[in-house]
């Protein structure tokens, strides 16, 4: 009997902690459906008459930012993975004398913390005339993702059996064909994993975009942080509309996690990440 009581106690403690942990999400969603007056009266109460209009106005105010973010993230991740895959093939499959040295040049990138390059990068983008263009973010994003992607892709491509390459080589295939017909198709699963990790990171990035882009070209993270309701919106509900915008901005990552949660949790808990 005492064991049962102890078990119950643990369940209750976990539930309380879990509720407190996800409270910000609950607060966001619940108050996104309310009016400003209802939130002021009590931020805890449930909405009496759920106000879907907040979401309509929020989407209206942030829609251009979704298109901007989708373009920037899409092009960046595609460019980053393409060039990382090419480089990984060279590091994994080609024999040349400078290979080790050049690999350390890439590996050394992991020692450069993002804060160190933030300000000079901003000045560089400004001098190149790329302020207020998506390219001012895409080029640094492609560079920033290289080290980690190459690190992973190189060991993946190295693990492909050499027999596959040799058979194709006997048929007269050159390296570009070997890359395109063997290395690329076999790397698709790992490319998807890397793409997801990078999409998550870039989608919520705020600091560099806020320096590079003005409000006419803002990304989703900027649009929700500096939320401006559409002109016809009732300004008394501006905060609730902002919470609706927060909720909407969490949906893409929410959907991604819905499909990949099991996979993601398994990845971390498999014990691969420890020192």
């Amino acid at each position: 009997m005492p064991i049962r009581i102890r078990g119950l106690w643990i369940h209750m403690a976990i539930i309380v902690l879990a509720a407190l942990t996800i409270y910000p999400i609950v607060f966001m969603v619940v108050n996104a459906f309310k009016t400003g007056a209802e939130t002021a009266a009590s931020p805890f109460a449930l909405p009496l008459h759920p106000l879907f209009n907040n979401f309509k106005l929020a989407l209206q105010a942030t829609w251009p930012a979704y298109r901007q973010s989708a373009f920037i993230v899409g092009v960046s991740v595609f460019g980053m993975l393409s060039s990382a895959l090419l480089a990984s093939y060279a590091f994994a499959r080609l024999q040349f004398r400078e290979r080790e040295m050049l690999f350390y040049v890439v590996f050394g990138l992991l020692l450069i913390p993002p804060f160190l390059t933030l300000i000079p990068l901003f000045l560089e983008i400004k001098n190149l005339g790329l302020l207020d263009t998506p390219w001012g973010l895409i080029l640094p994003y492609i560079a920033g993702g290289q080290a980690f992607a190459i690190f992973i892709l190189r060991s993946f491509i190295r693990a492909i059996p050499e027999d596959l390459f040799e058979a194709a080589r006997i048929d007269g295939a050159h390296d570009l064909r070997l890359f395109w017909h063997i290395a690329v198709p076999l790397s698709v699963p790992i490319l998807i994993t890397l793409a997801v990790l990078n999409v998550v990171g870039l989608w919520s990035d705020y600091i560099l975009p806020s320096l590079v882009l003005n409000s006419a070209h803002e990304t989703v993270a900027m649009a929700i942080a500096n939320f401006v309701p559409p002109p016809q919106a009732p300004s008394i509900n501006a905060f609730n509309q902002q919470l609706a915008a927060f909720t909407l901005s969490s949906i893409p990552l929410g959907v991604l996690f819905l499909f990949l949660m099991r996979y993601f949790v398994a990845g971390i808990t498999s014990g691969a990440l420890k020192m």
Partner: peptide
């Protein structure tokens, strides 16, 4: 061939990682 495969990566990381780090 190897240098051809490495060219895009090195163009990006020298231009947008090593150069700004050096400038800093």
């Amino acid at each position: 061939i190897a240098y051809g495969f490495l060219l895009p990566t090195f163009a990006f990381v020298i231009g947008f990682s090593y150069y700004p780090a050096f400038r800093a």
